[in-house]
Simulated assay, not measured.
Amino acid sequence: MGMTSAWAITAHDDTFIARLAPRMLPLIEAERADPGARRAWRRWQEAPLPDFWSWAQTSGRDDEVEAEALHSFQRLTAAGERIDAMYDGGPGDDSFWLIEDVWEQAEDPERMFLSVHTKEYAVSAFFHAIGPRRAATLPGWCGNFAETTCLPRL
């Protein structure tokens, strides 16, 4: 049994973003404001994880403190319950499917950035690589974002 995760960055026109943002941005902000997420973020800032090979294997760990730090980081960089719930719709809500309702609606799906990982979460691997200082400069919260500002086309 294995795990596969994907992280996609797609480009959409202003009309699409105007429809998506009210649905997505409050969920991202709720994840950011969650006290547990804030504690996990501070923990990671104060003590970034050691190199990848020292934390890649979580089973059979002797160091409980190190194992809990790893699990805290992995929970922090997972999509989050609120974002996951968005994809399933909710009571009285229409269904929402990431692939059909976002990825396939991209202006040019062939130019989509797609990172697929086996054995690790794509965002966890990326955040571990760039560290907490650089991760703090990214939009959104822990890999979830909807950029609503218009950037000039080059």
Rank of each mutant, 00 (worst) to 15 (best):
M1G: 13
G2S: 08
T4K: 04
S5E: 11
S5P: 00
A6L: 09
A6P: 03
A6F: 00
A8D: 10
I9R: 07
A11H: 12
D14P: 05
D14Y: 04
T15Q: 14
T15H: 10
T15W: 00
T15D: 13
T15A: 15
T15C: 01
A18R: 13
R19I: 00
P22C: 07
P26Q: 04
P26E: 01
I28F: 03
A30Q: 12
A33T: 07
A37Y: 07
R39T: 09
R42M: 07
R42D: 11
R43H: 00
R43M: 06
Q45Y: 04
E46N: 03
E46S: 00
D51A: 10
F52A: 10
W53C: 02
W53Y: 09
W55R: 09
W55V: 15
Q57K: 08
Q57H: 05
Q57M: 06
S59V: 12
G60E: 11
R61L: 02
D63R: 01
D63W: 08
E66M: 14
E68D: 13
H71P: 00
F73C: 02
T77H: 15
A79H: 03
A79S: 06
G80E: 04
G80F: 05
G80S: 08
E81R: 11
I83A: 05
I83M: 15
A85W: 02
M86R: 06
Y87A: 13
Y87D: 12
Y87K: 09
D88F: 08
D88V: 04
G90V: 03
D93Y: 10
D94C: 10
L98D: 05
L98G: 11
I99C: 13
V102C: 11
E104G: 02
E104I: 02
A106Y: 01
E107H: 04
E107N: 12
P109K: 08
E110F: 09
E110V: 12
R111D: 10
R111C: 08
R111E: 13
M112L: 13
F113N: 13
L114V: 10
S115H: 15
V116R: 10
V116G: 04
K119A: 12
E120L: 11
Y121K: 14
A122G: 13
F127C: 04
F127N: 07
I130D: 04
I130V: 15
R133Y: 07
R133I: 12
R134N: 09
A135S: 14
A136E: 02
T137F: 04
T137H: 11
L138D: 02
L138M: 03
L138G: 01
P139I: 00
P139G: 01
G140V: 02
G140C: 06
G140M: 04
W141P: 01
C142D: 00
C142Q: 14
C142L: 03
F145Q: 01
F145D: 07
A146H: 05
E147D: 08
T148R: 06
T149G: 05
L151C: 11
P152A: 12
R153C: 08
L154P: 11
